[in-house]
Computed example of a mutant assay.
Amino acid sequence: MKKLLPAAAAVLFAFAATSQEPAATLKIWDNATAPHSNRIVLAPGEDDPARTIRTTETELCIYPADPARATGQAVVICPGGSYLGLAIGHEGHDVARWLSQNGVTAAVLKYRMPNGHPEVPLEDVQQALRIMAGLEAGATGFTADKVGIMGFSAGGHLAATASTLGAFKPAFAILVYPVITAEPGKGHQFSFDNLLGEDRTAEQSEYYSLQNRVTEATPPTLLFHSDDDTGVPPVNSALYYEALKAHGVKASLHIYPMGEHGWGFHTTFPYHEIWKAAVLDWLREINR
C-alpha cells in the first residue's frame, strides 16, 4: 500500500466501522462483475471483507426512514478518505442513523477505490442511486422518488462527480468539506493522485476539477466547510458554489469559523447542532 504523505494523514482518518447494523446490506458487485475494475490486487491477509482501505467490492448499507417521520426522500452517503479508504463511521453510518431517525432513508455506500481509474467510483455511485430509485433490483421497500447524494471530503468529490458527470443525476446533493478542484494551492492533491494516478495530465486534472463541469442540469446543492480547513481549503466549496449560481442552480453555502477538516458527525465539532439543523431545514425546503 502506498505510504501516506504527512499532509494526507490529516485528511485520512478513523476507518473503523460502527456496531449498530443497518436494516439491509446489498452487495452490488466486485472487480470481476462490475463494468470496470480498479485493478487492485490484494495481498494475503488483506482480503478482510470489513476492510475500508483499498476496497475492491461495492456494498450499500440501508437505514430506512422512521415511518412516522418519513419525508419520501432518500440519500446515498459517500464517506471520505482521500480516494484511498473510507471514513465509514463518522462520515457514513453515524450520519445515516441520524438521517433515518429524521425521516430520510439513508444508504451508506462502500465504494471501490479508483486506484487511478476514475470511472470505477462513479459507476459504483451511479448504480447505488439507480438502486435506491428503484431502477435496479435490490432495495425493494426502501426506494424513493427523490434520491439525493451526500459526500464528505473525497466522498464529496464523488458526490459532485455524480452531480455533474453522471448519466443518472441525484435529485439533490449535500457536500461536506468537499474536494472539488485540482488547481495548485487550492486542491487536495493526494486525492487527485489516487483518483487519476500520480502521472495525471493537466487535462485530466482540469476535467475532474468539478467547478468546471457544472451545468444547468446539476442538482440543487448544499455545501459546508470550515474556514480554518487546511487539508481541503474552503475555496473548494466556494468555487463549486459560484459555478452553481452562474448556471442558475439552487445552492446554499455554509462556512463555519472553525472546525478544521474531517468533523463529520463528531459531536466535538463546535457547530454540530447548527449543522444538523441546517441539513434538515434544507431537506424540508427542497421537498416542498
Score class of each variant (00 low, 15 high):
Asp199Phe: 00
Gly185Trp: 03
Asp281Leu: 05
Leu42Thr: 01
Trp263Ile: 01
Arg112Ile: 04
Leu122Phe: 01
Asp228Pro: 03
Phe190Lys: 00
Gly72Cys: 11
Ser209Arg: 04
Thr55Phe: 02
Gly148Pro: 05
Ser237Phe: 06
Gly248Cys: 03
Ala74Leu: 09
Val104Thr: 07
Ile88Pro: 00
Lys250Gln: 14
Leu283Met: 08
Asp193Met: 10
Gln101Lys: 15
Gly231Asp: 14
Gly80Met: 06
Arg200His: 15
Thr25Arg: 13
Val232Trp: 06
Pro233Lys: 13
Lys169Ile: 06
Ala107Gly: 09
Tyr241Gly: 02
Glu136Arg: 11
Ala171Lys: 12
Ala202Ile: 01
Asp66His: 09
Leu195His: 03
Val41Leu: 12
Leu222Val: 05
Thr25Ala: 12
Ser37Gly: 05
Glu273Arg: 14
Leu223Gln: 13
His90Val: 02
Ile174Trp: 09
Leu196Pro: 02
Glu285Met: 12
His266Pro: 05
Val125Gly: 04
Asn115His: 08
Val147Asp: 12
Ala16Val: 00
Asp94Lys: 09
Lys169Thr: 05
Thr143Val: 10
Pro49His: 12
Trp282Leu: 04
Gly156Asp: 13
Val249Asn: 13
Leu4Gly: 02
Pro234Leu: 07
Gly89Ala: 10
Gly138Ala: 08
Gly116Ser: 08
Ile174Val: 14
Ala128Gln: 04
Arg97Gln: 15
Thr267Ala: 15
Pro49Ala: 08
Asn236Trp: 05
Ala182Phe: 03
Thr267Tyr: 09
Ser37Met: 03
His272Cys: 09
Leu109Lys: 10
Ala278Thr: 14
Trp263Ser: 14
Pro22Arg: 09
Arg288Gly: 15
Lys276Tyr: 06
Trp29Lys: 11
Tyr271Gly: 06
Gly151Pro: 09
Gln189Gly: 00
Ser100His: 09
Pro170Gln: 09
Thr161Cys: 06
His117Glu: 12
Lys245Gln: 15
Asp199Cys: 01
Ala106Trp: 05
Pro219His: 10
Pro121Glu: 03
Ala246Glu: 14
Glu206Gly: 00
Glu285Val: 08
Pro219Val: 11
Leu135Gly: 00
Pro219Leu: 10
Ala202Leu: 10
Val41His: 08
Ala182Cys: 01
Arg284Met: 03
Tyr83Met: 09
